[in-house]
């Protein structure tokens, strides 16, 4: 029982990172129909920014803030430099372009920084452990969960209450009608990328705090998880992405805890097969809309 509770807490903590991550990915898909493969590199960018900032003597907190901002700026630049010139292209072309962009960025990291991993010193406070009865919880687990939940809540309030959030929700429903109300499409898209980048940045800070290193291919696992969570939750649904993120985090932790030792390396594969079975039953994902046409 206590092991179950322990794993539940770990799972929720990891899941909360995945939820933030997936939300940023789902937002861009919801507004523009782009699945941004280079989204993972935003996390790498956060990592390198944190690395250089701590090297320059900044505090961890300042480095984390800079890291998140860097991801937001990079996300906007991606839109301006790559996606905008391709705005008339279809889903496949855009996906492929983002795939290529991801490779270009990894190449840049290798040339400009180093192909080898760079360590980021974490404050000691993060590695403390709190003992609650039979439970041992690291400070990082708690902080991660709290930061992620606050980020999700702030995002939800922003989308509900603010004028910009209203415009973005409307644009995701019907861009032309939104423009007919005098809302600039360009601004909404820019804002969507900035917000998506901020979410990637927050997830990035939490991710880097777990790994304490950054390499040119740091973004690979997060993007993979994000894609799976988004498909699991239902393409185009932001609620689905958050739920999918939590679900995948829990699945990962529980598989790791309860699988026989020899099978643990295959946990990723097993999780994917499990999700495939789920998608066989519900091809549109947990929160996606069923397609009516029976073709």
């Amino acid at each position: 029982m206590s092991q179950f509770l322990q794993q539940l807490l770990n799972g929720l903590s990891l899941g909360s990172i995945y939820a933030v991550l997936s939300l940023g990915l789902a937002m861009i898909y919801g507004t523009l129909g782009i699945l941004n493969f280079a989204y993972g590199e935003l996390i790498t960018i956060t990592g390198y920014t944190m690395y250089f900032a701590t090297q320059a003597g900044l505090s961890f907190a300042a480095a984390a803030a800079l890291g998140a901002i860097a991801a937001a700026v990079a996300s906007v630049l991606m839109q301006q430099l790559v996606f905008r010139p391709l705005q008339r292209a279809g889903f496949v072309t855009l996906l492929f372009a983002s795939f290529a962009l991801s490779e270009v960025l990894q190449g840049v990291f290798r040339q400009a920084v180093s192909p080898r991993a760079k360590g980021i010193p974490l404050p000691d406070a993060l590695s403390n452990t709190i003992v609650l009865g039979t439970l041992r919880i690291s400070t990082l687990t708690i902080i991660t969960f709290v930061v992620a939940i606050v980020a999700l809540a702030v995002f939800a309030v922003f989308m509900r209450r603010s004028r910009a959030g209203l415009h973005m929700r409307a644009a995701a429903l019907d861009l032309t009608t939104t423009r007919l109300q005098g809302v600039s499409a360009g601004r909404v898209i820019l804002l969507a990328f900035a917000l998506s980048g901020t979410l990637a940045g927050i997830a990035g800070v939490l991710w880097i705090s777990r790994t304490a290193t950054v390499t040119p291919s740091t973004g690979a696992t997060p993007i993979l998880v994000g894609f799976i969570a988004v498909v699991l939750g239902g393409l185009g649904s932001t609620v689905g992405a958050v739920v999918g993120g939590f679900a995948f985090g829990l699945l990962e932790v529980f598989l790791e805890a309860y699988l026989p030792l020899g099978v643990v390396p295959f946990q990723f594969a097993i999780a994917l097969v499990a999700i495939s079975v789920l998608l066989y039953v519900r091809p549109e994902g947990l929160f996606g809309k069923a397609v009516e046409v029976k073709v």
Binding site: L35, F91, L224, V230, V231, S276, E284
Partner: peptide, 13 residues
């Protein structure tokens, strides 16, 4: 059984 975009993700998986 999937929509085309979900299918792309599935091949990725």
């Amino acid at each position: 059984r999937m929509t085309t975009s979900a299918m792309v993700m599935a091949t990725f998986a």
